[in-house]
């Protein structure tokens, strides 16, 4: 993982890019996905997240869809990007580091890639739940469908 300084301009660009043209915002056309619905009491966010796991428990595809603000749209979309190809352990580790970053705890930035764009979310504390709504749902889904269960 190359280390470089993410400037505020780059972070804005990442968020706007995933907000204006999300890559993974669509319902699955085929079978084989597990899904979870998540809605927020604080924001209008009302989304479904979808995961397709292969027989080894590796994320083959990750998607989301629903009504969402800019922050939840971009964060859910980036999450899907990062999840694809990961095993459950790495996926849950990624999720944990993201939550730590948002709650201003020490975190491992090496796994977060574009999700680093949300490092300032705590400046708008009321929106942390928007940045994490997709992540929380995916975490629950991963845990519910653990490969070793």
């Amino acid at each position: 993982m190359p280390t470089f300084e993410l400037t505020p301009a780059m972070m804005r660009e990442i968020i706007m890019d995933h907000y204006s043209s999300p890559r993974h915002k669509c319902d699955p056309e085929q079978e084989g996905y597990v899904s979870l619905h998540s809605a927020s009491v604080n924001c209008i966010d009302d989304i479904n997240v979808y995961l397709k796991l292969d027989d080894k428990g590796i994320v083959e595809d990750a998607r989301w869809n629903g009504v969402a603000c800019a922050i939840s749209t971009a964060s859910s979309d980036i999450l899907c990007d990062l999840l694809i190809g990961k095993n459950e352990k790495d996926a849950l580790y990624l999720n944990e580091q993201f939550h730590k970053m948002l709650h201003e705890e020490p975190y491992d930035s090496s796994v977060l890639e574009e999700a680093m764009a949300f490092m300032n979310t705590s400046k708008q504390a009321a929106r942390i739940h928007c940045a994490t709504i997709g992540w929380d749902a995916m975490e629950q889904l991963l845990k519910e469908h653990r490969h070793d269960r």
């Binding site: 800019a70 708008q124 929106r127």
Partner: peptide, 21 residues
């Protein structure tokens, strides 16, 4: 701008409004 994002932006200016439904 999505209402909730506008609400957050107003918050950043010290203005408390409600956004959503």
């Amino acid at each position: 701008v999505f209402a909730q994002d506008a609400g957050t932006w107003l918050n950043s200016k010290g203005i408390a409004c409600r956004s959503g439904s």
